[in-house]
């Protein structure tokens, strides 16, 4: 997806937080990424290292936590958990599923040195 832009968004959130909490160095960043967020974890790690250079989070470890994908099946009108975006409904086999969340991209917490 746009992992570089995401990391720039992360950098700006991290810098705001660092300023607010008056901290000089972040050692670990934990992010929650939804199954349907379209984020490539490897690319995110690569971009993270590049984008954080020169910031309070330079050299910090990036930990990604995956959140499950949920969708509403328009055939049986039940909210179900699915692994892949185009999977059929595990209950009725229907093919019309509307994602309900699972596209989250959230910074959970920061570990400060």
């Amino acid at each position: 997806m746009h992992e570089m832009s995401l990391c720039e968004g992360m950098r700006s959130v991290i810098e705001d937080q660092a300023r607010q909490h008056n901290v000089a160095r972040i050692t670990r960043v934990r992010v929650e990424i939804g199954r349907f967020a379209g984020v490539e974890t490897k690319a995110l790690h690569f971009a993270f290292d590049v984008v954080m250079r020169g910031s309070v989070a330079e050299g910090a470890e990036l930990v990604t936590l995956e959140l499950p994908g949920r969708a509403l099946c328009y055939d049986c009108m039940t909210e179900v958990e699915i692994d892949a975006r185009l999977d059929p409904c595990p209950l009725c086999g229907g093919g019309k599923l509307m994602p309900q969340g699972g596209d989250d991209m959230r910074i959970k917490d920061l570990e400060v040195a």
């Binding site: 995401l6 720039e8 968004g9 992360m10 950098r11 700006s12 959130v13 810098e15 937080q17 660092a18 300023r19 909490h21 008056n22 901290v23 000089a24 160095r25 992010v31 984008v51 020169g54 910031s55 309070v56 989250d104 991209m105 959230r106 910074i107 959970k108 917490d109 920061l110 570990e111 400060v112 040195a113």
Partner: peptide, 27 residues
């Protein structure tokens, strides 16, 4: 443009800041 560069002077003490903030919250 790329991101802005800033340096924040301050304390160093090991701890966790819970933020639960969307990555795209600024946008």
């Amino acid at each position: 443009h790329g991101p802005a560069g800033t340096e924040v002077p301050g304390m160093s003490q090991e701890r966790l800041i819970e933020i639960e903030t969307d990555i795209l919250s600024k946008n």
